[in-house]
Design a binder for these strands. Structure first.
Lengths: 345, 345
DNA sequence: TTGAAAGCGTTACCAA
DNA sequence: TTGGTAACGCTTTCAA
């Protein structure tokens, strides 16, 4: 950040260009005598020459940096391994390729996705499910490669996306509950995901699966702040099982039930979504849908890198891929046959 | 990334410089007629002009980006809220100031800290405790502002650091154990932290505090891979309590003991370090030392921003500060009087 | 109130 | 085998 290529050139008695090609020259067919090359390398080391990353980025039109956008990025949940998993997936794709990962506020605050393609990222991984059709339109016209996560098939045409198989997942949930004998079941979704594409997809999938299985179902728009658990339960005494959009919601439910003296799974079955180590430590252990967040994040990032490379070589990959990841249901201790059944029998 | 300031200038029939000052001009005492200004602004919006971040960074010699270096950054623990907490602290300091957070592999791989000051970061937060005197020397001569975490007083002179009060913390641990009647206690440290400044500080603090309290103490170099728990215990039957460098280690201990049929806290008392939500969910709930990771990270980042501002204004803050954060012991269910005592009584 | 030109540190192209 | 020169997109200084 102090000694430039020029200084090295002067010290070596050659031109700046000579130094540049000696130190970084790769594609160049130009060669120098080993003698000058060695002299320059020695001098560079001696003077502690450090290439200016920003100048290179400007010149090369590439920053070797990928921007990642989370949902609700202002605060990472401390309980939920979702974020560490996501980041682990991204990092393990990025770091071996010497890419830097950037978390940027202005990508999140406000709706100005312009800053995404202001040249500072070679590509962007959009892991917020709260996209709108308007923002998608901007993305599609974006000059910077973009890959999405949590965009169910049909919600982000023209953009590559990596998403869990929500339909399959919730079919398994219903099958499990139905198999246990539940006849009135509920899907709980939080105020944010209630409006996201993935939230809507899961709600629909749940309702459809229930209807196919001929069991009664409804949706509960859960809100942590307005703690309506007891109210909900008193209005829905016949509901014997609740499946949740996330482990986090399910966790809150467990806590709430404990406070109300409701025993799980005896009085109520609860199912989460994500099935992380979190589920192993709740009391009771939480039955939950497993989705491979880390794998999804890794694949999405790898694909992003492919897009970046393709763009660089002139060919614009015109075929966006839309990958759907199979989920599995990890049955633990928070689900059981409904108590009335037991008693009636 | 496509339409430049030049395009806007041409379209407006003015010079590039006019566009620049109208759109970003702040310090400039130059003013333009409201008419041209308005025309330019309108045109910029119409053409979807997006200032090139990299070009600005080069010119202004500032990137508005801070690099963060973790320990073992290749993989975030999914269990331990330490990383989310750290990141939350950093982000809440950075984002309101419109700074971007970057996680960069080359800062971690290899020992080439050069890349840290290659101009791409305005400042660096070094949260890896595994610094060496050699690396410190490089840091001190660094042209880029740097702040450290986990550098106990005396280990990183000349560099601002933010660290837990390990001495006070382990005094409390010893006081607690001693008060319960323990007479032979152990401190467990993992292979990594065994060599870090903070690891050494905690070991020393533990041994000193024990010696002051006149109880016997030793150190156990715990290694997850060589699962020596039973071996350790069989060789140290008289040890009735183990304090750990981290909650993670303590967690592994709980698991190991369960496998061996050792009941906690009846047969053995266990204490962790960090006291995150993790401790609430173990069985039994884990007694642990609380340190304000998020607060430390927030303060460290804030301080880093101060350093950056100062440097920018020419004054180099020559007084590094070394902040030590008080810890508290959160007593939960994994500590109890030693069983022999109970029986003997 | 405005423009021209220099420069930030690189790399790429063309000549020698 | 080497060097000059232009350009990346922006800001700042100086001059008009």
């Amino acid at each position: 950040m102090k000694v430039t290529i020029k200084d090295v050139a002067e010290a070596a008695g050659v031109s700046a260009m000579t130094v540049s090609t000696v130190l970084h020259g790769s594609g160049s067919n130009v060669r120098f005598s080993e003698e000058t090359a060695e002299r320059i390398r020695a001098l560079a080391k001696e003077l502690h020459y450090q290439p200016n990353y920003v100048a290179r980025s400007l010149r090369l039109k590439r920053t070797n940096t990928v921007g990642v956008v989370f949902q609700h990025f202002d605060r990472l949940s401390e309980d939920n391994p979702y974020y560490p998993k996501l980041l682990n997936g991204v990092m393990s794709a990025l770091f071996p390729e010497s890419y830097t990962l950037a978390l940027c506020p202005s990508l999140v605050q406000g709706d100005n996705p312009h800053s995404i393609w202001d040249g500072r990222f070679d590509g962007v991984l959009w892991a917020r499910p709260d996209f709108s059709e308007a923002s998608l339109e901007k993305f599609r016209n974006s000059t910077v490669p973009l890959v999405m996560m949590h965009a169910p098939v049909g919600t982000a045409d023209g953009i590559s996306s990596f998403t869990a198989d929500n339909v399959g997942a919730l079919e398994q949930v219903i099958r499990h509950l139905s198999g246990l004998g539940h006849e009135k079941v509920t899907f709980a979704v939080d105020p944010v995901n209630e409006h996201t594409a993935e939230g809507i997809a899961r709600v629909d999938a749940f309702l459809n699966a229930a209807s196919e299985a001929k069991i009664e179902s409804r949706v509960w728009f859960w809100d942590e702040r307005t703690r309506t658990l007891d109210e909900f339960l008193s209005r829905n005494r016949d509901c014997t099982a609740i499946a949740c959009f996330s482990d986090t919601i399910a966790g809150h439910l467990l806590t709430g039930c404990k406070e109300l003296g409701i025993q799980i799974p005896r009085d109520l079955s609860v199912i989460g979504f994500d099935s992380t180590t979190f589920c192993e430590r709740t009391t009771p252990r939480l039955t939950s849908v497993h989705q491979s967040v880390e794998q999804m994040a890794y694949d999405a990032t790898k694909h992003l890198l492919d897009l970046i490379k393709a763009r660089r070589e002139g060919e614009i990959l015109s075929l966006p891929i839309s990958s759907t990841y199979a989920c599995s249901l990890d049955v633990r201790d928070s689900t059981a046959p409904p108590s009335k059944k037991k008693i009636t029998k």
